[in-house]
Amino acid sequence: MTGELMVKAEGVHKSYGAAHILRGIDLEVRSGEVFCLVGPSGSGKSTFLRCINHLERIDGGRLSVDGQLVGYRQKGDKLYELKDSEVAAQRRDIGMVFQRFNLFPHMTALANVMEAPVQVKGESKAVARERAERLLDRVGLGDKMGNYPSQLSGGQQQRVAIARALAMEPKLMLFDEPTSALDPELVGDVLDVMRDLAESGMTMIVVTHEMGFAREVGDSLVFMDGGVVVESGHPRDVLTNPQHDRTKAFLSKVL
């Protein structure tokens, strides 16, 4: 995969008070790529993912999506923070799927998927509904459109969440441990949807513990630990032939 550069991180740092979570992340994600982030919990992979759509503000380095700095504007050698509305505009093109789904519980599955196109893009309800129905069909929930999230299983909720993110027709999808909160027998359905999405050419950054998925679907894999990138390469290479001791130690526990 050698598409255009989609995400570029140079020396990204992030701290919460005294806790230095990201200690200089450098990586590049190309368009059309399925990019997997793995590592022990607390390694900073979720934090990094949340920096990409500015849910977290970075403290150092440069982070850009599709050539645009995330959360800032550069004029000369000065950085200006973006206004809330400008940040919101940047986020429109980046879909995100959360570990805990975060569906809107007071809306049906269909309304969840229609919400952002209607409210953010100002799309007509008819157009948004038509696309929402198509997307819910695609994730295998054509018969659950009128259900509220509390009436759906975890796996179904996560698939609605994927459809909701896709409804904004993003150029990049972020997955934050999308299967970690699911019962084992429900993981497969969600991974199937993600596999299907990868085949359609979507650029995806996936924080995951599903090494099987990473090996099978991933184009690149980065192993993070202690806020730095320890090792990166093709998933097959990193997973079967890790070079660093920390990678080996981690993989011996999860594989």
Binding site: A88, I94, R164, A165
Partner: peptide, 27 residues
């Protein structure tokens, strides 16, 4: 209201006001 709701709305590109009116207040 769970913070994840605000995050999900922001991630979809909703403004602060829209998030409050459409997502947070109804819940």
């Amino acid at each position: 209201v769970d913070e994840g709701q605000t995050e999900a709305a922001h991630a979809l590109g909703m403004s602060q006001t829209k998030t409050m009116r459409r997502i947070v207040l109804p819940q």
